[in-house]
Simulated scan of single mutants.
Amino acid sequence: MLTNEHIVEQALERITAGYVFPEKATVVVAAIRARITAGAYEGLEGPELCETVTAHLQEACPDKHLRLLWTDEPQSLEPVDDDGGEAAFRALLMAENQGIHRVERLEGNVGLIELRRIATAIDGASAIGAAMQLVAHSTALVLDLRACLGGSPEGAALWNSHFFGDDQVHLHDIYSRATDSTRQYWTSAHLPGPRYEDRPVYVLTSATTFSGGEDVAYTLQAHGRAVVVGEATRGGAHPTARHAVAEHVLVTVPTARSISTVTGTNWEGVGVVPDIAVPADQALDAALKAVRP
Rank of each mutant, 00 (worst) to 15 (best):
Q184I: 07
F210R: 04
A217M: 10
S188Q: 01
A189G: 11
L204D: 02
D198N: 13
S206D: 13
G213V: 13
G212C: 15
D198F: 14
L204S: 04
Y196V: 02
A189K: 04
T209I: 06
P192S: 10
T209F: 05
A222S: 08
L191G: 03
S211M: 13
Q221A: 12
P200V: 09
A222W: 02
D215M: 15
V201H: 01
V203R: 01
H190I: 02
G213E: 07
F210N: 12
H223W: 14
H190Y: 02
Y218T: 07
Q221Y: 06
L191E: 05
Y185H: 11
V201L: 07
T208N: 05
S211Y: 06
V203G: 03
T208K: 13
R195D: 11
T187D: 01
H190D: 04
T208C: 12
T187A: 00
A189V: 03
A189M: 04
S188E: 06
A207K: 14
Y218K: 12
F210Y: 15
S211Q: 10
Q221H: 13
Q184C: 13
S206P: 14
Q184K: 14
A217P: 10
V201R: 03
T219D: 06
P200F: 13
W186G: 00
P192Y: 05
E197Y: 03
Y196I: 02
Q221V: 05
L204N: 04
L220F: 08
T187V: 08
E197R: 09
A217D: 10
D215H: 15
Y218Q: 11
Y185E: 00
D198V: 11
F210P: 07
A189S: 12
W186E: 00
S206Y: 12
D215E: 13
R195N: 11
S206V: 12
L191W: 06
H190M: 05
H190G: 00
E214D: 12
F210E: 10
P192R: 01
T208M: 09
L220E: 08
Y185A: 01
Q221C: 01
G193W: 01
Y196K: 00
T219P: 08
T219V: 15
G193T: 02
V201K: 01
Q184A: 15
T209N: 10
H223V: 00
A217F: 14
L220Q: 09
Y202F: 15
A217N: 12
T208Q: 08
L204F: 08
A207Q: 15
A207H: 11
R199A: 13
F210L: 14
D198T: 09
G193H: 02
V216T: 08
Y196P: 00
L191D: 03
R199C: 07
W186V: 00
F210V: 09
V216P: 03
P192I: 03
Y185V: 02
A207Y: 09
P192M: 09
E214V: 11
D198R: 15
V216D: 01
L204T: 06
F210H: 15
A189N: 07
D198K: 14
H223L: 10
P192G: 14
T205I: 10
L204I: 03
T205W: 05
G213M: 08
P200C: 11
R199F: 09
T187Q: 00
E197K: 13
A222G: 03
Y196L: 03
T187H: 03
Y185I: 00
F210A: 08
V216M: 04
L191M: 07
L204C: 06
E214A: 12
T187W: 00
H190R: 13
S211L: 14
A207D: 12
P192V: 05
S211D: 11
E214I: 10
P194I: 01
